[in-house]
Amino acid sequence: MRRIISVLMENEPGALSRVVGLFSQRGYNIETLNVAPTEDPTMSRLTLTTIGDDHKIEQITKHLNRLVDVVKLVDLSEGAHIERELMLVKVRATGAQRAEIKRCTDIFRGQIVDVGPSVYTIQVTGAADKLDSFLEAVGEAAIMEVVRSGVSGIARGEKVLSL
């Protein structure tokens, strides 16, 4: 099963390499990963998605927790949560296609953020599967470049991951 694990950790040199190293060392896979400082600059928030059965996920969270740099973590997929990913797509847009792509972008509530004579650069945000659908809708032939931020997420309601 796909899980979103969100980690609050010390914003220290080496902390990220310990997290990433743990995954390769123990044979766990990382599907997506993003990391940035929080409102408290001494801490970073790292979000990763991974796939595994309950046993594997339990091992992953236990081993992450064992890292001295990790302050706290949560498996967001265990409860109600909001998942977002940002994607920038450069597509070939000429002739009739220009209108077609514009319409498609609107349907997905994306934005065209840069325009050239024969290209559009489109920004789409949403859950990862929405971004997948957008790419499918636009069609492989038109796509020149795709940049995805990796998933980030937050729990719904009062629940927070903080000190």
Binding site: P13, G14, S17, R18, G21, Q25, V68, D69
Partner: peptide, 16 residues
């Protein structure tokens, strides 16, 4: 050294 020892230490520090 921090990189080489990373998987075999409980923790490591680089003094800056």
């Amino acid at each position: 050294m921090l990189g080489i020892s990373r998987p075999i230490v409980k923790h490591s520090f680089q003094v800056t």
